[in-house]
Computed example of a mutant assay.
Amino acid sequence: MKLYVYFIVLTGLILLTVTGCCNIPYNIHPASTKNQSRCEAIMSNLAKNDPNSKLTWFDAKVIGVEGKGWTDTEGYYERVPAKAKGILTNAALNYGKHSSGLYVRFVTDSNTISARWKLRNKELSMFHMTAVGVSGLDLYVHDNNTWRLVGIGRPLQFPVNECVLAGDIIPGTYEYILYLPLYNTVEQLEIGVDPGSMFAKASKQTVKPIVFYGSSIVQGACASRPGMSHVAILGRRMNRPTINFALAGNALMEPEVADLLCELDPAVYVLDAVPNCHVGCLNANFEKFVVKIRSAHPDTPLIFFEEICYPNEFHTLQKPTQNDNITFLKLFKQLQDKGVKNIYYITSKDFIGTDGEAFVDLIHPTDLGFMRMADALEPVLKRAIKKE
């Protein structure tokens, strides 16, 4: 019996040594999980000494950023692969380098959680979008089987900011998500916790991701903070990884972009490019774009959105959105007639409503708009992924 116990313990130590870190279940007090002491020791070896701080700091790269479709990016906190430099336009490449949709998942029992991040771009905010949304952070905790906001990172200066995200936390071990800026690029990110606290990578999500492609709206304009984009909202609701491949103002459904998207292996593609790809663009690119993705992923669900009904069109003679959506629906039905299966279509009326209350600048949604978008998309996603 003693020999058997010794073998089990030795096997566990070997596994911990090989993996370098273990994943800790959240909401469990450290004393109740024997393996946590091993995780503490491993992670403490990777802590950064800062004589000017009372906290223990960890480079976020230690546990890894999530939400990336490609690992071979020029900057660690960028979304597009390095090879996209010869494929995308300069404008699309610039937006693709923003950290929108990236997040860090970790587990800690610290009473305080702080962040220190370095930004690439001086423009901390936009006229229609808050500095927290453009260049800041927000932190969610998983507690009582739901995700709750517990703190934000306010970008008050360029290039480096530091702030306490959460403090006076109820004792316990919790899982957190830290969302990165929507319209700026993070150059460096560190997470600070109390000395002696456990700090570890959250358990890996083993299901396939949801891949989003689209316009500035998909990138997150104009959510008040990163966790309020519909991409982030749905990731929490669905408990599933997400990849945001939005290229603000440059989602034109080019075949080269389809080739990049084909390299991914998602549970479902969510494609929302009509706000950038109007009638001429749709007629030229849409079918070719879909055929390319279908050839690489014959069974993966494809969800399409109409262009949002902008709130002022009821009062104007010209109806450009209506023309785009009429063309888009026609092309979608042509795909159905040609036998393309497992495709879904969401109308603008169902997507964000027609009362006009969900916009900040007649084009981009507010947090209310993103909640409505998530509400419209969630049942369709569940129906599509059910076939996975």
Rank of each mutant, 00 (worst) to 15 (best):
7 F>I: 14
7 F>E: 08
10 L>E: 01
11 T>I: 11
13 L>M: 14
15 L>E: 08
17 T>S: 14
17 T>V: 12
18 V>H: 03
21 C>Q: 15
23 N>W: 15
24 I>F: 09
25 P>A: 05
27 N>C: 05
30 P>I: 07
32 S>N: 14
36 Q>F: 14
39 C>H: 00
41 A>H: 13
49 N>Q: 14
49 N>I: 12
50 D>T: 08
51 P>M: 06
59 D>V: 10
64 G>S: 12
68 K>C: 01
72 D>F: 08
73 T>W: 04
77 Y>M: 01
79 R>F: 08
81 P>K: 01
84 A>K: 04
84 A>M: 10
85 K>I: 04
86 G>L: 05
96 G>R: 09
96 G>K: 06
99 S>N: 04
101 G>R: 06
107 V>A: 01
109 D>Q: 00
109 D>N: 13
113 I>N: 00
113 I>E: 02
114 S>N: 10
116 R>F: 04
121 N>S: 08
122 K>N: 06
123 E>Y: 03
123 E>M: 05
125 S>K: 15
125 S>D: 15
135 S>R: 03
139 L>C: 02
140 Y>K: 03
146 T>C: 11
147 W>S: 08
148 R>H: 10
148 R>A: 09
148 R>N: 13
151 G>P: 06
154 R>W: 14
162 E>N: 02
164 V>R: 13
165 L>K: 03
167 G>P: 07
173 T>G: 12
173 T>V: 01
177 I>Q: 11
182 L>G: 09
187 E>H: 12
192 G>V: 08
192 G>E: 06
195 P>D: 06
196 G>P: 07
198 M>W: 07
201 K>R: 15
202 A>W: 11
203 S>P: 13
205 Q>G: 10
216 S>E: 05
216 S>F: 08
217 I>N: 06
218 V>W: 00
223 A>S: 13
223 A>N: 10
224 S>G: 10
225 R>I: 08
227 G>S: 14
228 M>N: 15
230 H>R: 02
231 V>E: 02
234 L>T: 05
238 M>H: 12
238 M>W: 11
241 P>T: 04
244 N>E: 09
245 F>E: 14
246 A>W: 06
249 G>F: 09
252 L>V: 05
255 P>E: 05
257 V>T: 15
257 V>M: 15
257 V>C: 07
257 V>G: 10
258 A>G: 07
263 E>L: 03
267 A>S: 15
269 Y>N: 00
270 V>N: 04
274 V>A: 13
275 P>R: 00
277 C>R: 05
280 G>D: 15
282 L>F: 02
289 F>K: 00
290 V>A: 00
295 S>V: 03
298 P>T: 07
299 D>C: 00
305 F>N: 14
309 C>K: 12
311 P>G: 01
313 E>W: 09
316 T>W: 11
330 K>N: 13
331 L>C: 00
334 Q>N: 13
335 L>P: 08
342 N>K: 04
347 T>H: 03
351 F>S: 08
355 D>K: 03
355 D>C: 01
357 E>Q: 09
357 E>A: 06
364 H>C: 01
371 M>A: 03
372 R>L: 12
376 A>D: 08
378 E>F: 02
386 K>D: 14
388 E>F: 04
